[in-house]
């Protein structure tokens, strides 16, 4: 996985919504909650199974956030690896048919400051 291209697909077993810069994701399997920041959101929204991670980084991260390609790619690999571990994203070495996502285009993250993709998960009850 380290040298081959990575293609990302969002899992069907999630609920997700982008609110401004952040994306709220909840696994429907175990109710784990994730909140992605602006960079994470940019990667998440581009995870269509067809666009290689390097292209996502180039087009959605480096051009929008003040960060070098190498640095962003290393951070992104760690980030998508964490999401994949929790089953909310899958990674493959070849393009895959994306999960049918009729979601209307949500507001894309607007870059305001350099940021490192980060993911924070915590088991939480779904009660509000």
């Amino acid at each position: 996985m380290s040298t081959a291209e990575m293609y990302l697909s969002q899992s069907a077993h999630i609920a997700a919504r982008t609110l401004g810069d952040d994306t709220l994701i909840m696994s429907t399997l175990d109710s784990t909650i994730f909140v992605l920041n602006a960079v994470g959101t940019a990667i998440w929204n581009a995870a269509d199974g067809k666009t290689p991670l390097s292209q996502i980084i180039h087009e959605r991260v480096c051009s929008e956030f003040e960060v070098t390609g190498e640095e962003a790619y290393a951070d992104a690999k760690e980030f998508v690896g964490q999401l994949a571990e929790h089953g909310i994203l899958s990674i493959s070495n070849a393009p895959v048919s994306p999960y049918a996502n009729p979601e209307k285009a949500q507001a894309q993250a607007s870059a305001t400051k350099p940021a490192r993709p980060s993911e924070s998960g915590g088991i939480q009850g779904a009660e509000k």
Binding site: I14, A16, R17, A100, A126
Partner: peptide, 30 residues
């Protein structure tokens, strides 16, 4: 669910049989 909502269903459940339970599971109802 296709629009990625976290969905809860409030029901008295008397119309939920084995088939409906499977469908709710597949849909990922929270």
């Amino acid at each position: 669910r296709a629009l990625r909502f976290n969905v809860k269903l409030k029901t008295n459940a008397v119309m939920i049989g084995p088939e409906e339970a499977v469908r709710l599971r597949r849909l990922g109802i929270e």
